[in-house]
């Protein structure tokens, strides 16, 4: 198993190291601020409003999980 993995690792080396280098380059070259952040919560919109409530139902779930 470990021998097989080693052999396949070698055959995939070129592409893999390319992407790794590219990924590393991207991470270095791009300031974290450049990376578009995932869309932030917009509490103004109805669909992003909180729905979770710590109802009795949910409390019972938490309690039963402590057993």
């Amino acid at each position: 198993m470990s021998q097989k993995a080693k052999e396949t690792e070698k055959s995939a080396f070129d592409r893999r190291s390319f992407f790794k280098a590219l990924g590393a380059g991207a991470t270095v070259a791009v300031a974290p601020a450049m990376v578009t952040p995932a869309q932030a919560v917009d509490p103004g919109k109805d669909e992003t409003r909180a729905r979770y409530k710590e109802s009795d139902h949910v409390k019972a779930f938490y309690r039963s999980n402590r057993y």
């Binding site: 992407f19 790794k20 590219l22 990924g23 590393a24 380059g25 991207a26 991470t27 070259a29 791009v30 450049m34 990376v35 578009t36």
Partner: peptide, 16 residues
């Protein structure tokens, strides 16, 4: 987790 590198590329380097 490799998708994170691709994401950084696609949202940063690629745009640039």
């Amino acid at each position: 987790p490799a998708g994170r590198e691709w994401r950084a590329f696609h949202q940063g380097t690629m745009v640039r």
